[in-house]
């Protein structure tokens, strides 16, 4: 029995590094994506998180820090803010839920010392478990213990695989030496300094409005969001929760907008821009809820006016 337990223990001690070695070799040497089923997020993947992280690491100070999902990094153009004398950095990432938002905020808050944090609170994100965002940040975000814990919290094989691969790339210097293209014609994306990603004007994603439905906010994501609110209160940083505008017909089709609005406004300053402006799919948005550049310009103009009028920025 003792021999058996000893061998089992030794086997696991050998198997863990063995697994890591095979995983790293497989992930980086096999050229076919289909053969990497549970290793599907890699360096430089969708959303420009790699470039954004590198830029964020070098920022000393910003006036406004934006967090949230693709609605954040595709909705707040730092160039427009800069024209008004406001420095804005966009730390949004693909499908970023409050679980990852909290980790990123802890990572960068003291470094970039913002006066104001704008949190883009598209309710669809609060419905998600956040695995996709965890994978994106593990592959492309900052490499630190709090980020690594995202893998353990997700407790998902894809997250563990992404963590192992990232650790390898980090330690062998591949991560540092990678050069992510700023323009990705296949996705129609161009990275703009300040964490923003601009979509090509010609890009349209075919979508149809579903039947009327309601947002269903997950309790765990709500709890993480409350932690974010508390953290910012503790650090005495102003928080503005924003829902960037979505297609007006799509917005009207959602049954519990009032309930969601009252839930967020109960936590502090909150603006739902779909209530203030009517934007339209194809004209201002490339799908039902992601802004095109023309939509971003309209939205950011109104937002900056609000920030000035309400005195969010000194």
């Amino acid at each position: 029995m003792k021999v058996f337990l000893k061998r089992i223990l030794i086997f696991f001690l050998v198997a863990i590094p063995g697994y890591c070695v095979i995983l790293v070799a497989w992930s980086n040497l096999i050229p076919f994506e289909a053969f990497k089923k549970n290793m599907n997020y890699k360096m430089g993947s969708y959303g420009h998180m790699y470039t954004r992280t590198n830029e964020a690491n070098n920022i000393q100070k910003t006036d406004v820090l934006v967090l949230g999902s693709s609605h954040a990094y595709r909705g707040f153009d730092p160039r427009i803010f800069k024209n008004e004398g406001i420095e804005l950095f966009n730390l949004g990432s693909s499908n970023q839920t409050p679980r990852q938002g909290l980790v990123l905020l802890k990572e960068y808050l003291n470094q970039v010392k913002p006066e104001l944090v704008i949190y883009e609170v598209y309710p669809g994100i609060f419905q998600q478990d956040g695995l996709e965002s965890t994978l994106d940040i593990l592959a492309n975000g900052p490499f630190s213990w709090p980020v690594a814990t995202l893998a353990f919290k997700a407790n998902h094989i894809k997250a563990y695989n992404a963590l192992i691969n990232r650790a390898f790339l980090q330690f062998c210097g591949t991560y540092e030496s990678y050069n992510e293209p700023l323009v990705k014609p296949k996705d129609g994306d161009t990275y703009v300094r300040g964490g923003y990603v601009q979509k090509d004007d010609s890009y349209v994603r075919a979508q149809r409005i579903k039947n009327a439905y309601s947002w269903n906010i997950r309790q765990d994501q709500w709890s993480y969001f409350l932690e974010i609110v508390e953290l910012l209160k503790k650090e005495k940083v102003e928080l503005l929760m924003v829902q960037s505008p979505i297609d007006s017909t799509y917005f009207e089709n959602i049954l519990n907008n009032d309930e969601v609005d009252s839930r967020f406004s109960g936590l502090g300053n909150y603006i739902n821009f779909s209530r203030l402006m009517k934007l339209h799919y194809k004209e201002d948005l490339y799908d039902l809820h992601h802004l095109k550049q023309s939509g971003v310009e309209k939205f950011n103009k109104v937002l900056i006016e609000t920030l000035m009028e309400e005195g969010y920025l000194k």
């Binding site: 063995g18 095979i22 549970n38 094989i157 563990y160 695989n161």
Partner: peptide, 11 residues
């Protein structure tokens, strides 16, 4: 055996 475990982890 570790290779089999890896295949499980990957697929």
């Amino acid at each position: 055996y570790i290779f089999l475990i890896f295949l499980m982890g990957m697929f």
